[in-house]
Amino acid sequence: MSAQTKTIPSGPAAAAMISAGIGGLTIGILTTGAVLSEALKNALVLYVPAGPLSGKTTFGIAVWLLSWLILNALWKNKELNLRSVFTWTLVLLALGLLLTFPPVFEAFEA
C-alpha cells in the first residue's frame, strides 16, 4: 500500500488542532467579554432575536477558520512537535470552556 511509505508532514495537523483551540478560546473570551462590557455585548448582536449569542458564535467560527487558513499556509510543509501542539490545543480549549462556564463568567458581573 503506497500510503505506508509516504510521510505526511505534521504541520497541517498542527494547524487544524491549534486553530480549533483558538476558535474555542474566542467563543470563551467573547462570552466573558460580553459580561464585562455592555458595548461589546451590544456589538455582538448580529441577529436581534438571538441576541449576542449570534455574534459570539459567528466571530468564534470566523476566527477559527481564519486562523486555520493562516496557520495551514505557514505550516503545510513543516514538521512540528505534535505533542506540544496538542497540549497547547487542550489548554486553549480548556480556557475557552472555562470562560463559557456560567459560574466563571458570572463572577465578572457587576
Partner: peptide, 22 residues
Amino acid sequence: HIAWFSPILTVAVLYLIFRYGP
C-alpha cells in the same frame, strides 16, 4: 455556548481523517 465547540472539533477531526487517510 459549549454546543458550538462540537462542530469546530468535529470538522478538525474530519479534516485530519481526510488529510492523513490510510
